[in-house]
């Protein structure tokens, strides 16, 4: 395999808690996260709200500094110095979740894209600038381009806005795109368009993509590798098909079971692992996370070990890995529903 474009190791982020009586306490938003992005491949980061996915993306986009861990771009460690940041932004771009908030309502498409182009090509002007702007619009399939260039954001639909946001990110010719739930605010009917656009960018431009989502079905559609996050920790990862077809962590199993599947009827009597429990529980409070494996209060297989220490990583032959005591204790078969 080729060298990774963007690699984050043991990334952690703690946010200080403000308020009376909580001096010195922190929210452990992300703990020891590892992300590796390769040219021309898409990694999905899956997890429920509050699991720290967005924090990982924002750290990778240098929106705020990490508490611990390192980020390497093309093998070189990234610093937060102003000039270093600028050249980093040229390589790594973030696509925001909300296309209604991430475009300045007072600027036309021409200005937004034109600025994005000119920040890194300072001498770009006139006809050439116009040509490159139109080229960007063509790249994200906003045709007829001559019409879209003079629109204000409020004249565009959500899907069209998200295309502009993607075009703006592409303007700097990045090698990495970080998509922070890029389709979650869009109508279901246009989500597929955006997913196909991202897939096209991966194939044609050879971009490395981090695709963050809570929707495992879209991850399955788009991605090559899936990583699952729970309460700020990476609990499982690996090639898409292995993770989805044979999840090795009970939490992945829960996520898969909770995504609607037309093939599985409610009345069929086909009980999943979590059907017995009426209450699936809530994600833990990250100011005071549970000891050991953070999933143990919700896990139907929790053992004593789970309450005490976080399990080591178990590697499987096809590249899949998981942090779960079941595999350390040779009880992995319970996940397949066998006794």
């Amino acid at each position: 395999m080729t060298a990774p474009v963007l690699e984050a190791t043991n990334l952690s982020k703690e946010f200080p808690v403000h308020g009376r009586g909580s001096r010195g306490t922190t929210v452990k938003a992300v703990q020891n996260a590892n992300v590796t992005l390769h040219k021309g491949s898409i990694v999905a980061l899956v997890g429920e709200s509050g699991s720290g996915k967005t924090t990982v993306a924002r750290m990778l986009a240098l929106a705020y500094p990490q508490t611990a861990g390192t980020i390497r771009l093309n093998g070189a460690e990234v610093s937060h110095a102003r000039n270093a940041e600028r050249s980093y932004f040229r390589q790594v771009q973030l696509i925001f979740q909300d296309p209604f908030a991430s475009l300045n309502p007072l600027h036309k498409v021409r200005y937004t894209l034109g600025r994005a182009l000119r920040i890194h090509q300072r001498t770009l002007r006139g006809k050439e600038l116009e040509e490159q702007t139109l080229e960007l619009l063509r790249k994200v399939n906003l045709t007829p381009v001559e019409q879209f260039i003079d629109k204000f954001p409020h004249e565009l639909s959500g899907g069209q806005r998200q295309r502009i946001v993607i075009a703006r990110a592409l303007a700097v010719r990045p090698s990495v795109l970080l998509g922070d739930e890029p389709i979650s605010m869009l109508d279901v009917s246009i989500r597929l368009d955006i997913l196909n656009l991202l897939a096209k960018l991966r194939d044609e431009e050879g971009l490395a993509l981090l695709y963050i989502t809570h929707d495992i079905a879209s991850a399955r559609y788009l991605c090559d590798t899936i990583q699952v996050m729970y309460a700020g920790q990476m609990v499982e990862g690996g090639p898409r098909d292995s993770v989805i077809q044979s999840p090795k962590h009970p939490y992945t199993k829960l996520l898969l079971d909770s995504s609607p599947d037309p093939g599985r009827s409610l009345r069929s009597g086909d009980t999943g692992l979590f059907d017995v429990a009426d209450d699936l529980g809530e994600p833990p409070n990250l100011v005071d996370p549970p000891s050991g494996c953070q999933f143990h209060p919700r896990c139907p297989f929790a053992m004593d070990e789970c309450r005490q220490t976080f399990p080591e990583r178990t590697e499987f032959p096809d590249g899949q890995w998981a942090h779960c005591w079941l595999h350390q204790k040779d009880r992995g078969h319970v996940l397949e529903g066998k006794p």
Partner: peptide, 11 residues
């Protein structure tokens, strides 16, 4: 978001 986005372009 729009200000953060422009900042992350290197504005």
């Amino acid at each position: 978001d729009f200000t953060v986005a422009m900042r992350m372009l290197g504005e």
